[in-house]
Design a protein around this nucleic acid. Structure first.
Length: 684
RNA sequence: GCUGGCGUAGCUCAGCAGGUAGAGCAGCUGAUUUGUAAUCAGCCGGUCGGGGGUUCGAUUCCCUCCGCCAGCUCCA
């Protein structure tokens, strides 16, 4: 047999004989695979180390900390966990257990519900099994044998998976449901779909090749699982793992099917990497906007008011005001008209818009008065359309850009509410652009650029941009879709952004571009969405009079840049960890008098700040200076001004920055100047 | 909405075999007049999420509702 070529981790190339396991070949070369690689790659395929070296192949190594390497580790860890669960609970029925971003999970049906106390027990069993160096032994079975195995072991879910593979080849058919129009408050829906589909492909695929009917199994000790692989050679390769939490999950993500128990865990190549990850999780908890919202007295939610309905406290209200003032200024400077619309509208409006037909589940229930039915608005668009329709529009009027910080209400299911990030009442920084087909291209480009300008100003440097294209069910002309989709792609390109195409991920009424920002911890959050709408102009019969004196249908674009102000603030709180830059800090400077006799001077310092429209306050409590400093630090106030005898006498302040840096003593006027300079939005 | 977990003072929690509740922080009062991340003392504060049941007796056991949390589903 012909040799294969292997590219080693250090860049050297080696010839290895075909036929023997890849691992053996590596060991013969004196390589230490655990540290440098966990699998091999050939032709874009990841191969187990136990796979025989293919002849005439050119192999590379898959490092343990690469995306593919981590997948191998985590998928193997998922099997190890399942093996541990099976050892502890032999009646367990296993569903799927894929590697996911940051870890893995396994869904299973167990005789009794798991509790958090079970996790350390399962983890201990995993360590015990890992120490036994159990092999991950692969074998191929005919479909009929595989089914016989699954039936014999009463693995009902595996039976179903095998049946699916037999029927469809690998994955389940994937469909998208139509809905209605408007600016969504959406978050990662495409991602979830993709994740689920991917997870299932990963697990389902006993890798049925066209024209064959075998599926692969992996056996680890006494645990056998239908699985495509690849895996590490044996359990001793898994050194750093941790089970993190448990949750319910519907079988195949279908709420009509049984709820399984899901155990989440994660695995890393090294203990240090695992520790770092766990530390990051801890950091994320420290930055949780719900926690910071209470600690910094920004907002609250009250049972008496209702879930998902936010009460903004003075400090949170201050931040919000600053954001909204900035937003309004910039919109006026960028050719938008500000409009205001009501919170409720008559049923007829929502019939015409189609919301009552497609969106009613998410609307607050009907209100009745004066013989008419009214609904609280879940979207602003119908109102903006009514403004458009308040008179005859000429091509000379276009483009029209109606912008509103419009508060909408959506009756989200109770279980989805989450702090500020998923609420029932929220304020969209909404705008609707009505333009001619010729203007559309430039309008989209402007909107995308405008959005990036906002995001940068609020400190976000990294984005993910998605262009979502026409789904199977759609309204409008395919030609219009084509033109609009191209405009979106061009706009992304012109803004200097790399983007991904979410094929078929558009709304039924038009294609869209979504921008997600990445926060300080690299987590993505959907904010901006720019969507074409080929539905509402039709439903409302929108028109403008063209140069030819004939009626034409305008293009309509929905766009929200920050998304929802509530969500954006939630993201912002976590992004800054509550330590807002000076221009956004609700309190920019806290003045700390050393003793009672300095109170008058401290008050005069605050008064001076207020004259300059800067935000200061005095801590005149009867406490020692160390205590007051600690409190100001905990409140994450950017500037701490200590004033004692010396400062009072000289008209100065002793400036301490948030975090402890000492700026020394300076004349009050100098400090005012410094802070005033900083008190402006600045793009990063 | 579904599965699981959890609801004890404003916050963080203890109270782990049923005998009507404790701590720290916060708040209030007093002493102290303080120089860069917690001064000391006293006091106030809870019908133990709501309702029902078992029991001589329930924060503790059971049922039910409400809310929160982790996920799932959803998020046009």
């Amino acid at each position: 047999m012909a040799d294969a070529e292997l590219l080693l981790a250090d860049g050297r190339r080696a010839r290895i004989p075909a036929g023997q396991p890849i691992l053996a070949a590596l060991q013969a070369l004196g390589e230490a695979p655990v540290e440098t690689a966990v699998a091999a790659a050939w032709n874009g395929q990841t191969l187990d180390f136990m796979t025989p070296v293919p002849s005439d192949a050119s192999l590379t190594l898959v490092p343990p900390d690469s995306p593919d390497g981590l997948r191998v580790l985590r998928h193997s860890a998922a099997h190890l966990m399942a093996a541990a669960v099976q050892a502890l609970s032999p009646a367990a029925k296993f569903a799927i257990g894929p590697a996911i971003e940051d870890g893995f999970y396994y869904d299973m049906e167990l005789p009794r519900p798991l509790t958090p106390e079970d996790l350390p027990i399962i983890e201990a069993k995993m360590r015990e099994l890992a120490a036994q160096r159990l092999l991950y032994q692969r074998r191929e079975l005919e479909m009929s044998e595989a089914l016989a195995w699954a039936r014999e072991h009463r693995q009902d879910y595996k039976i179903e998976i095998l049946e699916t593979i037999r029927q469809y080849g690998t994955s389940r058919p994937e469909g998208r449901a139509p809905g209605t129009q408007g600016v969504p408050e959406s978050r990662e829906s495409a991602e979830h779909r993709a994740l689920n589909a991917e997870a299932e492909v990963e697990e389902l695929a006993g890798e049925v090749q066209v024209g064959t009917s075998t599926v692969s199994f992996y056996q680890t000790g006494t645990f056998t699982d239908l699985c495509r692989g690849p895996h590490v050679p044996d359990t001793s390769w898994l050194t750093a793992f941790r089970l993190t939490h448990i949750a319910g999950a519907y079988w195949r993500g279908d709420e009509r099917r049984p709820m399984l128990q899901r155990i989440y865990g994660t695995a890393f190549p090294t203990q240090e990497a695992l520790d770092r990850h766990l530390f990051n999780l801890e950091e994320a908890r420290r930055r949780d906007h719900r926690r910071l919202g209470r600690e910094l007295d920004l907002f609250s939610v009250a049972d008496e008011v209702g879930g998902g309905l936010i009460l903004w406290h003075p400090k949170g209200g201050m931040i919000r005001t600053l954001i909204e003032d900035f937003w309004r200024d910039e919109h006026l400077a960028n050719g938008y008209d500000l409009v205001y619309t009501p919170h409720v509208g008559r049923a007829k409006l929502w019939q015409v818009s189609g919301h009552l037909e497609f969106y009613q589940d998410l609307m607050y229930p009907r209100m009745e008065g004066d013989g008419n039915d009214y609904y609280v608005k879940p979207m602003n668009c119908p109102f903006h359309i009514m403004i458009y329709q308040s008179k005859v529009r000429s091509y000379r009027d276009l483009p029209l850009r109606f912008a509103e910080l419009g508060t909408v209400y959506r009756f989200e299911r109770a279980g989805v509410l989450h702090g500020l990030l998923r609420v029932r009442g929220f304020t969209q920084d909404d705008a609707h652009i009505f333009c001619t087909p010729e203007q559309m291209d430039e309008e989209i480009t402007r909107a995308v650029r405008f959005s990036l300008f906002f995001l940068r100003t609020f400190g976000f440097k990294d984005y993910e941009v998605y262009v979502a294209t026409r789904p199977e069910k759609f309204v409008g002309e395919p030609g219009d879709w084509e033109v609009a989709t191209e405009a979106l792609k061009r706009a992304a390109g012109r803004a200097g952004q790399a983007y991904e195409v979410d094929a078929g991920g558009g709304a039924f009424y038009g294609p869209k571009i979504d921008i997600k920002v990445k926060d300080a911890l690299g987590r993505p959050w959907q904010c901006t969405t720019v969507q074409f709408d080929f539905n509402l102009p039709e439903r409302f019969g929108l028109a403008f009079v063209g140069e030819d004196n004939r009626q034409h249908r305008p293009f309509m674009v929905h766009r929200a840049l920050l998304g929802s102000i509530e969500r954006f603030l939630g993201v912002l709180i976590e992004h800054y960890g509550g330590a807002f830059p000076a221009w956004l800090a609700p309190v920019q400077a806290r003045v700390l008098p050393v003793a009672d006799r300095h109170h008058a001077y401290a008050a005069s310092v605050v008064a001076r700040l207020q004259e300059e429209h800067l935000r200061g306050e005095v801590d005149d409590r009867n406490e020692k200076i160390g205590f007051k400093i600690r409190e100001a630090e905990v409140q994450k106030i950017p500037y701490i001004l200590v004033v004692g005898d010396r400062e009072t006498a000289a008209g100065t302040v002793s400036v301490r920055l948030r975090g402890g840096q000492d700026r020394g003593v300076m004349p009050l006027a100098d400090f005012v100047h410094t802070l005033a300079t900083e008190n402006k939005p600045q793009a990063v």
